[in-house]
């Protein structure tokens, strides 16, 4: 069984043909070649694959592509404005919120969604908001700092 799929990804209308079992992350990475969305586990626990689905952060490895028929998806590739990084990306850069960087796309997407609900997050808000994202390198301290700075920068820039 194959299904014709149509959705908006990073503002572009895209189409493809998928099997029902194709995960959203597989469609993004393998069909659209948007490999910024990572797969770090096989159990839907690590959060490296987080994208925005109709504005809400979701694990694209726990979502079937066919469930996103007609939806709007934003991946890490869709955040920057040309050569200008999104304020949250810039904050991760400025505050050394990563070491190997594998978990970073998911961290950034979750952080962007967190700030949408909680414009001025406390340390506790950030740690709770990033519960679904695992990092093996940093110990999270700089990630929390980065998200706090990113949240402030998002207000200043009016970005979202």
């Amino acid at each position: 069984m194959s299904i014709a799929l149509s959705m908006t990804v990073n503002g572009q209308h895209v189409t493809g043909t998928v099997e029902p079992r194709t995960l959203l992350v597989e469609f993004l990475r393998e069909t659209l070649r948007l490999t910024g969305t990572h797969v770090g586990c096989d159990t839907s626990q690590c959060g490296a694959c987080v994208v925005l689905l109709d504005g809400c952060s979701v694990k694209s490895c726990a979502t079937l592509a066919v469930q996103c028929q007609g939806a709007s998806v934003t991946t890490i590739e869709g955040l920057a404005n040309g050569a200008t990084l999104h304020p949250m990306q810039q904050a991760f850069n400025d505050h050394h919120g990563l070491q190997c960087g594998f978990c970073t796309p998911g961290m950034v997407m979750s952080a962007v969604d967190l700030v949408r609900h909680t414009p001025d997050p406390s340390d506790a808000d950030i740690r709770k908001g990033l519960e679904g994202n695992l990092c093996r390198c940093t110990g999270y301290q700089n990630i929390v700092r980065a998200v706090q700075a990113g949240a402030r920068a998002m207000h200043t820039s009016g970005g979202g």
Binding site: V58, A62, S110, G132
Partner: peptide
């Protein structure tokens, strides 16, 4: 429940 992404789905 779970984490933010689980709660969104």
């Amino acid at each position: 429940i779970g984490d933010a992404q689980v709660r969104n789905r």
